[in-house]
Design a protein around this nucleic acid. Sequence first.
DNA 1: GTTGAAATTAGTACGAA
DNA 2: TTCGTACTAATTTCAAC
Lengths: 209, 209
Amino acid sequence: MSSNSGRPADPSGRIGIGLELDSIHMKILEVLRENGRISVAALAERVGISRANAYTRFEALRADGAIKRFTAEIDHVRAGLGITALVFVTVRQQMWKQFRAELARMPEVEYCAITTGQHDAMIQVRMADVAAVHRLVTERMANIPAVKATETVFILDEVLRRPYVLPTDRDAGRTARRPAAPEPAEVPLGKMRFVGAAEGRAALRKEGG
Amino acid sequence: MSSNSGRPADPSGRIGIGLELDSIHMKILEVLRENGRISVAALAERVGISRANAYTRFEALRADGAIKRFTAEIDHVRAGLGITALVFVTVRQQMWKQFRAELARMPEVEYCAITTGQHDAMIQVRMADVAAVHRLVTERMANIPAVKATETVFILDEVLRRPYVLPTDRDAGRTARRPAAPEPAEVPLGKMRFVGAAEGRAALRKEGG
DNA sequence: GTTGAAATTAGTACGAA
DNA sequence: TTCGTACTAATTTCAAC
């Protein structure tokens, strides 16, 4: 389920240019993220195009994969999964395939991303209670050979989840924010830290695994 | 935008029991997460109830807040935001309000959660390129007084994002997975680590802020 | 909580600009 | 390409059971 999966490369060798997205496509995406159940007729009106055109573009966006799916956002607390946790996982090298296979068998896992930094992957899980998280991590995850180590934090509050996607510079003037001359940051640095991939791995190797 | 926001407490003092969700409600949520644009008629058929019933329940779930919104999942790469990063933020105590206010002014931020552990919040951002992330963190975030420190990691791949919510024990037998006797874990512990709130804060205090 | 029929709306096809 | 219209199919609403 990589972001680029399932799309054919174009003849030039570059990928991801099946559809040139113009500002109207962007508007459509914007509206659809706010309200995924809006009718195409209403969508056409909000975007300012004809119904027929809206249908064409809607289908194109779907076929192209720019729209991956439509989904309902659920209140997990009300659904009985009151606890959300993040599990940062260190994966034994060359066991990624097994790791992914195991993930597929864990329905509690809602999101998984491979990251740079101290750990290799971040997993978000929703569970009924704290004990269930504990069980998941210590019983299930610990038994996966591909998992070298984990670190768990709990989510106390989800402050925001935005349904917007638009690059600010796509619709509002294409020349506005070009990073042509990336001026050196004139800010209090030092308290900011970027974590690359190598750093964490090296630290882990010391601990032995 | 807390998970519990906007709902009245019931007379007993407990919150979140506006609607008793039965297994059919759960099935509805399940279907709607897979396909947010399904018609209520088709939904009724898939869940095995009448259309009128489906409409009633659909509306109830919406009114209750169990369904928060319908949204389209967008391929951010195709939308021009090819880079996803996580910014872990340490927030100066008693400046949370300001921190949240600043977040609201940053449309690049797609998700923000308050966490236990070494940091106080995790922010997910989508940007056009790595330089943009750098600018965001060093120029914008660094200038927020509420932000004491940040740590940034990049997302290399989003392995999975599941549209399922159901507690495994809700529909498939309510007695199945009760944590009545939470047996002690008989697993290779030691490589697992839970990170509470205090630990990280203490470590940070040493560094001075 | 269910069924069925009326009213409305959505989706499709096609010609013109 | 996009728009406008007419046509067909489906969905929602509302009634009685």
